[in-house]
């Protein structure tokens, strides 16, 4: 019966190491996701009030001051949007309409 006991111990060891591997994988994934997301949220905060150039679908390009994004990344709230039809003081852009946006963030030094 000793063989049986050994088998059981071995099986437990395998189970143990499998679950440790899964836990490790999950916590690495959480670590990576947190790192990426926190940086993105800080980036959004960091460009608040900055002049931004938006490249959109249908070859549309506009400039506006970036204000805020909702957390799902569906909409950007902007101000002083320069459209071909004039300036709109407060506007909401749909993220689905946007391809890319570039923001001038000035020199390397940052204020504390």
């Amino acid at each position: 019966m000793e063989d049986g006991v050994d088998d059981k111990t071995q099986n437990n060891d395998i189970l143990q190491s499998t679950s440790t591997t899964n836990d490790d994988r999950l916590s690495q994934e959480q670590e990576d996701r947190s790192f990426l997301r926190e940086r993105f949220l800080h980036f959004l905060k960091g460009i608040q009030g900055k002049r931004t150039h938006f490249k959109m679908y249908e070859k549309t390009e506009v400039d506006a001051t970036f204000q805020l994004s909702d957390i799902d990344g569906q909409n950007f709230l902007v101000s002083d949007l320069e459209t071909p039809m004039g300036t709109q003081p407060q506007a909401m852009l749909r993220c689905a309409d946007i391809i890319s946006c570039s923001v001038d963030i000035g020199t390397g030094e940052h204020k504390m």
Partner: peptide, 30 residues
Amino acid sequence: HTVDPVSESVVLVHFEEDRQKTVEIVMGHA
């Protein structure tokens, strides 16, 4: 700089020689 895990938008930084930096966000769906 980062890729948003929610929208998969990519944040790119352009380092210019005159130290003027531009940051570009490329929307995940595009």
